[in-house]
Design a protein around this nucleic acid. Sequence first.
RNA 1: GUGGGCGUAGCUCAGUUGGUGGAGCACCAGGUUGUGGUCCUGGGGGUCGCGGGUUCAAGUCCCGUCGCUCACCCCA
Length: 435
Amino acid sequence: MKFQRPRGTRDFYPEAMATRNWIVDQWRRVSLRNGFEEYDGPIFELLDLYRDKSGDEIVSELFHFTSRGGDAFAIRPEMTPTLARMVAAQAQGLPKPVKWFSIPRLCRAERPQRGRLREFFQWNIDILGEDGVLADAECILVAADFFRQVGLSDQQFVIKVNSRALLAAILEKADVRPDRFHAVYAVLDKRDKLDAGAFEKMVEELKLPGEQRDLLISLGEAKGSSGLEDLRGAVEGHAGAEERYEEIRRLFELLETMGASACCRFDMGVVRGLAYYTGVVFEAFGTGGLQRAICGGGRYGQLLKKVGGPPMSGTGFATSDVVIEDVLRELDMIPVYVSAIDIFVIDASPEVFDDVIRLTTQLRAKDHAATFSYKRQGVGKQLKQASAKHARRVVIVDEKMRTERVVSLKDMASGVQTEVSIDSLLADPFQSAAP
RNA sequence: GUGGGCGUAGCUCAGUUGGUGGAGCACCAGGUUGUGGUCCUGGGGGUCGCGGGUUCAAGUCCCGUCGCUCACCCCA
């Protein structure tokens, strides 16, 4: 082959395309029924939009180019900057809260590996203009709704929820130096990937004073409702920490009311690397073989200000089609491919082929996906083709179409075949076969 | 950026101590002269990723290179 596919991209042949469409359809369906509106933006943005948010080092991870006019652009690697830009531009006039979703195609110039390609589709759910945890709860609920929608039981996935604000307040109360927060976050975020010994070793390497070290190790243990309960002591007497604690307690109360508590769990080990998260953070995991996060998000407080907008806070999450397909395939939950052919029209003999074309055209006019064989062969061969195309129904046309206006209608799944009038066929090609 | 694994037909792969490259599936064409998804026969298709070396002889051994893949780093 002279040309091959660029690294980290995919060709969507019909079967793969059907899978992609199915995933996207589920995303859209769940978004809409939870009251979110769809938006989209340009596939490339000014490079500085990403540089301002994430710093210079981001540029090497972007596909970027310079226009003839000298402007530097980048193909979008994520949707949040575009969202922030769009909301900031209209912030005054938009009814709050803004509940929007998008399914953008994104590109990142990183080295591909399992679950991470250079081009992929991402589902973004965001709520802006509402500071309370109700918005966070609703985002988490949407994620849970999706996993349930595609057939996962509450035992097959878990959404781990934490509050960075609470964590920061606890660290502040314990007099951890603010410049050490980021290092502490990084260690805590690795907690679930390490055994207890390796975790403690990493904590030791931070060289924190004894009390702070013990606190950090106990934070790594804080999981589930009892883990949240255990933190009560760590927040008492500190107004900010108590307030944050009450927030996340209320969040879990809301999740309970929404019927999502069975798949949600408090976990201090979820911090997420993103510098811009300021409040609630969460990540979803499959409980089977794949231990990787399959979806993640949280509250971002200052993002709109970064793109020149008002100090409006937002909360949301994202997940990619690559990871979703991975985890659903592992659980054998991707629907089998069925082609879009409703009716395959066959001639009983070459003389009636013009009638086949005529009937096919009429079926198409009724908005049915209908087709026929290009080759004039026996009925058996044409049925074979219909079968290969996964046609649901086959219509066999013979001279009786002219003399009596009837044809044979065959249900390919059951094999049942009946004679029907052309009028009744056009009215309903999927009519159940008369006994 | 670092490290491991793998490159043979469209796909999945076999290929013996080096001796003129195969199978299954898929595709195409025929057969049963009005009934498929499970029949039979035949066919097309590969400079064995690419380049160099050793050898009378390389898919096989050696070196280089490119590509794919997995993990790490990173993760918006």
